[in-house]
């Protein structure tokens, strides 16, 4: 199955083309140029892959960089609509874990300074939270002590984890742009019922407060 994958949430804006599990083309552009150069990166990746007949498009659905996420999903939905093929959304936590992890672990996505989004998989299930580092860790790891495997932006949480008596056992990040991992992961899942059903995960609610008179 030939998959075109796009990610704007993690690190650089990346594009990959996969033939089953084999990555045949990868392109990256700085996130700040995702709008202007992102589609050229798509075209360049497809050209490098020999313009295969695509079976599916995959897109990173976040959390991560808000603007990059919007642009990547905007591209992916329109391409799926235009070419009449399915679209699969892959979350940032799965992309950072490479889809191959099991057991207890924390996966961290960098946000604004002092802010993270994180997923904890533990004995009592899977939980996610986003916001200030301390608050996220308090929410997810109230009963956790000792050593903990951490994927993604472990450094963003290392000091706060140490204060909670948790020692980080870093899980190496995939040695490829996020889009390449997403292209592989998308081979293993069904696409969304329609491209419209693919929704971004911003992690955080919009940073806005009600006018004083409307607060409860």
């Amino acid at each position: 199955m030939n998959v075109l994958a796009i990610d704007g949430a993690l690190g650089t804006f990346s594009v990959a083309v996969a033939d089953r599990e084999r990555i045949v083309a990868v392109r990256e552009v700085p996130t700040a140029q995702a709008l202007e150069q992102g589609l050229a990166a798509v075209d360049a990746a497809l050209a490098a892959a020999g313009r295969p007949r695509l079976d599916r498009i995959a897109v990173g659905t976040g959390p991560g960089r808000f603007t990059g996420l919007r642009i990547a999903i905007g591209y992916a939905k329109s391409l799926a609509l235009g070419w009449g093929i399915g679209l699969a959304g892959i979350g940032s936590y799965d992309a950072l874990e490479g889809g191959a992890l099991d057991g207890e672990r924390l996966t961290v996505v960098s946000g604004r300074p002092g802010v993270i989004a994180a997923r904890y998989v533990g004995p009592r299930g899977t939980h996610v939270a986003a916001g200030a580092v301390d608050a996220v860790l308090a929410t997810l790891l109230a009963d956790v002590r000792g050593e903990l495997r951490v994927a993604g932006a472990a450094e963003d949480a290392r000091a706060a984890l140490a204060e909670r008596g948790i020692t980080v056992l870093p899980i190496p990040a995939p040695a490829e742009p996020a889009a390449a991992t997403i292209a592989r992961l998308a081979q293993r899942i069904d696409p969304a019922p329609t491209p419209h059903a693919v929704r971004p995960d911003y992690g955080e609610a919009p940073a806005v407060s009600l006018p004083a008179g409307k607060r409860r």
Binding site: L35, R70, I71, G74, K77, S78, G82
Partner: peptide, 14 residues
């Protein structure tokens, strides 16, 4: 950016 990204990709795909 949402509209521009979508429009560009639609133009490219079609």
């Amino acid at each position: 950016v949402v509209g521009v990204a979508a429009a560009k990709a639609l133009a490219y795909a079609s």
